[in-house]
Nucleic acid binder design. Structure first.
Length: 520
RNA sequence: GCCCGCAUCGUCUAGCGGUUAGGACAUCACCCUUUCAAGGUGGUAACCGGGGUUCGACUCCCCGUGCGGGUACCA
């Protein structure tokens, strides 16, 4: 069941009754609509920070959350736009577009709404302020007026003497008079968590039992001087109010989990289940980043990867079904993925395996569907050509962006030179064979391959030693005459696509090339 | 520096005390084949090291090593 859910705002202190405190935020509604129970047997969320392109590692986290919600659960999208320095408004729409492209549709979130709206954190500021006030009241947090300069100096000094870098709690000991005085001076003020003594212990769904000594953990800033919360405060408040049952995030968050647990306790809330999934690494085993090449989903889309393949591939970076199956659709993943089968060690992003899976998914598409997917890659193709092209390339590509070069011959007459045409053949042999195929092409494309094979075999009969190789050499001339390429789709399909006129024109051009200036 | 996590073929992984350590990608060879693919067959290739526990450790515990993460008024 989805816990206290949206009824929780009622448990917050009703209003900002600490009237001495500056109220940088306008007061929000007294409370959110409070359904007694929220939909979904599980509620998982993806809460990206819109600061740039959607990163492939984040997508995997989103995928895990989506799948782990299961068929009966709800997947929420929440925009974590609390860092105003790095915030990029266009990222919000980009993230949504990419998630939709991947099929990771959210049941609640921006645009689709839901019982816990709004799902954009910058629109929930009063909620965080109230939570901060509650923490302040209970002594779980304290105001801090230290300047960034002082904090930097402090850290530098601690580092220099080999100590862990932590806030020295200077402002914890401020008297109320001193606080009032500092406020009167208009000093910028933040709210810090007062990390209590003791240990933080939890059972991580992926990593197992975890234990941290709270003494090692810093007094984290919860509310910044600009009135926005830090991630730590915002996600605890929102996960609780949104009835999130399982928090699935990357291990880079592991060390800050004790802060979150302390927050839940101080606010009187039950923490959700926690699962920390291992990182996705680049080939050099460092956290996957831009310098490894493509790190943004958009780049993979533009390179011609299918969302099905990307999803399938990403799922196996940290999950496996325990069987020998390896091809999974998103909906299969959502019904099969469990916490028990999540890997605890990091995974290297192996582009070759992605290519392989992409080929698998390309071949699973119907030619009509593949044709549609090819559209952005073949802007010059007429709509009715797309399906035919799809059939021609389906078995020979691993990425959609291979198609333009593979099919380049379709839109412009190639002009292969004699050297390319003849290859290891004599110009005479190449010319004569090519000439002999003219009638076969005029007979339409149905029996074309048989006719060509027959011609090639009889022409090669004179070199019994390497008859097969000779057939290959002869067929190569035809391929190059028709397409200008050494690699192409099957010749009969090429001829069909080109039509008899273009075929004859190309063959005659190559014959002319082979005759050369001297006329052979 | 300090804190934390992780550790099976090159890569993704199966294994949850007794297996010829399995599969997939990649790679190599062969077959099929008009090219390239796709497909088929076969091969090479792994338990980080050292101590324990146990009749028996890839599997459990400890230490080391390696790799990674965190250490912000960023997420």
């Amino acid at each position: 069941m989805a816990g206290g859910g949206c009824s929780a705002p009622g448990q917050l202190p009703g209003d900002g009754h600490l009237s001495g405190r500056p109220a940088p935020l306008s007061e929000g509604p007294a409370s959110l609509p409070a359904p007694t129970s929220l939909p979904g047997n599980r509620r998982l969320r993806f809460a990206p920070s819109p600061t740039g392109a959607l990163h492939i590692g984040n997508v995997r986290t989103a995928l895990f959350n989506y799948c782990l919600a299961g068929p009966e659960g709800r997947f929420l999208l929440r925009i974590e736009d609390t860092d105003r320095e790095r915030y990029r408004p266009e990222s919000v729409l980009e993230y949504q577009a990419e998630l939709r492209w991947l099929g990771l549709l959210w049941d609640e979130g921006p645009e689709v709404g839901g019982p816990c709206a709004p799902y954009v954190e910058s629109e929930r500021l009063p909620l965080y302020r109230r939570a901060a006030d509650q923490l302040l009241d209970g002594g779980a947090a304290y105001p801090c007026f230290c300047s960034r300069e002082r904090l930097e100096e402090l850290r530098a000094a601690q580092r220099a003497s080999g100590l862990p870098t932590r806030y020295d709690r200077r402002c914890l000991h401020l008297s109320s008079d001193e606080v009032a005085e500092l406020r009167a001076e208009g000093r910028p003020e933040v709210v810090r968590l007062r990390m209590p003594e003791g240990e933080s212990v939890w059972e991580d769904l992926v990593l197992g039992p975890q234990r941290f000594d709270n003494a090692e953990i810093d007094d984290q800033v919860l509310l910044k001087s600009d009135g926005y919360p830090t991630y730590h405060l915002a996600h605890v408040v929102d996960d609780h109010l949104m009835g999130v049952t399982h928090v699935v995030r990357a291990v880079e968050w592991l060390p800050s989990t004790p802060k979150h647990l302390v927050l839940y306790r101080a606010l009187g809330w039950a923490p959700p289940e926690l699962a920390h999934v291992p990182l996705v690494l680049g080939p050099d085993r460092q956290k996957l980043a831009k310098r490894h090449g493509a790190a943004a989903v958009s780049e993979y889309r533009e390179m011609g990867y299918l969302p099905e393949a990307l999803v399938n591939f990403l799922a196996f970076l940290g999950w496996s079904p325990g069987t020998e199956e390896e091809v999974f659709s998103l909906s299969e993943l959502r019904s099969r993925m469990t916490f028990q089968r999540l890997q605890s060690s990091p995974a290297v992003f192996d582009g070759q395996r992605l290519d392989y899976l992409n080929g698998v998914w390309i071949r699973r598409l119907s030619p009509g569907e593949l044709g549609q997917r090819l559209r952005p890659f073949l802007p010059q193709a007429r709509p009715e050509q797309l399906e035919r092209i799809a059939e021609m390339v389906q078995e020979r590509i691993r990425r959609l962006d291979e198609v333009p070069s593979l099919m380049a011959f379709a839109w412009a007459d190639p002009e292969p030179g004699a050297t390319l045409l003849q290859g290891s053949l004599s110009a005479r042999a190449a010319h004569d064979f090519l000439e002999s195929t003219l009638p076969a092409f005029q007979g339409g494309t149905d029996g074309l391959m048989d006719a060509l094979r027959a011609l090639a075999s009889s022409a090669a009969a004179s070199s019994p030693e390497g008859a097969k190789a000779e057939v290959r050499r002869l067929m190569r001339v035809v391929r190059i005459a028709l397409t200008g390429q050494e690699v192409s789709p099957p010749l009969d399909a090429c001829a069909r696509l080109l039509g008899p006129e273009a075929v004859e024109r190309r063959l005659r051009h190559s014959l002319w090339e082979l005759r050369g200036p001297a006329g052979l």
